[in-house]
């Protein structure tokens, strides 16, 4: 779904533009994460993650990304960070933990990196 002429496709290193193509690719994954706004759905996921992912018809690549807590892979498979944040909450991950996981830093190193930009 390449749409030349639209600035939605500028390349910015380390950044995925969540556009129509990504929104379509990640629809079921994001829909599952949206369901985690409700506590009973978070509990259902914690009880049987495989069954819960199956219910939302996630692709094998999306399931694999979740099984291995690979956030960059979740984004590549269409995940949107605002919805993924609800999944991260189930695992009690802070946004600094999530930042560290994506940049290959410990949470402490990531916090130092944030402070270094002051």
């Amino acid at each position: 779904m390449d749409q030349p002429g639209f600035d939605a496709h500028t390349h910015i290193p380390g950044t995925t533009i969540f556009d129509g193509a990504q929104a379509m690719k990640g629809y079921n994954l994001n829909k599952m994460c949206f369901s985690f706004n409700r506590a009973e759905n978070r509990d259902a996921f914690k009880e049987d993650a495989e069954a819960y992912m199956e219910k939302f018809e996630l692709t094998e690549a999306q399931k694999k990304a979740i099984r291995s807590s690979n956030i960059l892979a979740m984004i590549a498979e269409g995940g949107n960070i605002y919805y993924l944040a609800k999944l991260a909450g189930i695992f009690k991950l802070s946004v600094q933990d999530v930042g560290g996981l994506q940049t290959g830093m410990t949470t402490e190193k990531f916090k130092e990196f944030l402070a270094s930009q002051a």
Binding site: V98, G99, T103, F113
Partner: peptide
């Protein structure tokens, strides 16, 4: 701020 991707943590004072 940027929360997602390899560029997570980016701030531009």
């Amino acid at each position: 701020h940027q929360l997602d991707g390899e560029r997570a943590g980016f701030i531009n004072k």
